[in-house]
Write a protein that binds this DNA or RNA. Sequence first.
DNA 1: CAGTTATTTAATGTTTTTGTTAATTAACGA
DNA 2: TCGTTAATTAACAAAAACATTAAATAACTG
Lengths: 108, 108
Amino acid sequence: MPELSTIFAALGDPTRFAIVERLIRDGEQPAGELLDAGPVSAPAISRHLKVLRKAGIVTQRVDRQRRIYAVRPEAVQSIGAWTMSHREFWQGSLDRLELALQQESERK
Amino acid sequence: MPELSTIFAALGDPTRFAIVERLIRDGEQPAGELLDAGPVSAPAISRHLKVLRKAGIVTQRVDRQRRIYAVRPEAVQSIGAWTMSHREFWQGSLDRLELALQQESERK
DNA sequence: CAGTTATTTAATGTTTTTGTTAATTAACGA
DNA sequence: TCGTTAATTAACAAAAACATTAAATAACTG
C-alpha cells in the first residue's frame, strides 16, 4: 500500500476526488461513464484514473472493450485509520470546545 | 472551511504531511523548530506553512519574534467525517473480505 | 474485413509547484 | 543603537501537473 501522502495527493485534485466519490456512491463504472465527473476530456479522465490506480485507490477490471474502475475499500479505510490514530487529538480538542460553548450559553 | 480536496492537496506533499504529524504529536511549535521535518530550507518550510494555513489545517500565533503553528483539530476531524460518511462502503467490504478469509481458513 | 466503440498513449504547451539564495522585516538584548 | 535571532517575501530556475488534439490499440458488430 502506497504512502498516505501519496493517497492524499491523488485525492487533492478536484476531478479525481469527484471520480472517487462517484465510484463510491454508484459503484464500479467504466471510464466512459466517468466523463461527467469533471469538465475534462476522455484522455484527461484516463490519466486521472491512472494516478488513482498508482496510488492504490482504484482497481481496473477489463470487460470486453471497457475498463471498469472501482474504489478499493482499503484505501478509504487507511485514511480512516490515520484520523483514528489521532482521535484523542481532535476529539479531545473538540470536546473542550463544545464544553466551552455550552458553558457560555448557560451563562446567558 | 476549505474544500476537502484542498485539504487533501495540502497533505499530499510529504514535507507538509510530516509537519502536520509533528505538530499533532508534539503540539504547537515555532517555524524554526519545524526545519527538520524535511530536507528543506527555512523559506521552503515557511511557504509550506502558508499552504497549510490557506487550507485551514494550521493556525499561526505570534509570540515575540516567533510565529507559532498548531494544527486545527477541525481539519483532521473533517477528514474523519468524510471517511465516516462512507463507512458502510469500506467497512462492509472489509467485513465481507474478512468473512471470506475466515471461511477459507476453516475449509483447510 | 470495414467500420464503430472504448480507452489509452503520444506529442505538445501552459500553469503550478517546489526549491534555492538574497534581501527584507521585525523584535530582542547587550 | 548595533548586532543577533526569527521568519517571511522577492526573484528566479527547475520539475511536475494538467489540459488538449491527434494517433494508436483493441475488441466488438454488421
